[in-house]
């Protein structure tokens, strides 16, 4: 069975690492009292989010140019549809999450400056109620992503341990396909 390209694998695991970091920091900083270290964490969280957004756009571009390997033949039409839908939702969520954070910052009147160097345009006018609403959207998306990632991981394990196919192996660097 064909594997994902090295670039696709690298981007997948890089985005996974950054998402884990952004989620952990986001969850932790949420209830901290205002302090210099909180502002530092918030900045890092935002920078990571913007980086994820850019990397996900790169992944989508790469995916269009290098279509993923075909799904195993044993999968039913329904399973194929589910896999396709699942990946679409994951991509939408990976873009929606940083976007909602960026919009939230704009509405709160705090511009996002990537790595403290590149200012992103403020997409919304300052509006505290809108900022509050968007922060709830941002938070809800966090838990929705967590749920979808959990399903994604469980599905990969199901392929590997129950179906005993190469769906997991083709995304894990260095993992050899099963010989059949």
């Amino acid at each position: 069975m064909q594997s994902y390209t090295g670039i696709a694998k690298t981007l997948h695991w890089l985005v996974f690492a950054l998402m884990s970091g952004a989620f952990t920091v986001g969850f932790y900083m949420h209830d901290l009292p205002l302090s210099p270290s909180k502002l530092q964490l918030v900045s890092w969280h935002k920078w990571t989010g913007v980086t994820i957004f850019v990397l996900v756009l790169l992944r989508l571009t790469w995916r269009l140019m290098n279509p993923p390997p075909a799904l195993p033949t044993h999968m039913s039409k329904l399973e194929r549809g589910a896999a396709e839908g699942m990946h679409r939702v994951l991509y939408i969520l990976m873009l929606a999450m940083p976007l909602s954070g960026w919009l939230m910052s704009s509405a709160k009147g705090i511009q996002t400056v990537w790595f403290g160097v590149i200012p992103l345009p403020d997409l919304l006018y300052k509006s505290p109620p809108l900022g509050k609403a968007l922060s709830e959207v941002h938070e809800a998306l966090g838990f929705i992503i967590l749920a979808f990632v959990a399903v994604h991981v469980l599905a990969a394990f199901k392929h590997h341990f129950i179906d005993r196919d190469d769906v997991l192996a083709r995304m894990v660097p260095g993992m050899k396909p099963r010989s059949k």
Partner: peptide, 8 residues
């Protein structure tokens, strides 16, 4: 400026 972000 707060972490190089302009605040008003």
């Amino acid at each position: 400026k707060q972490m190089n972000v302009s605040m008003d």
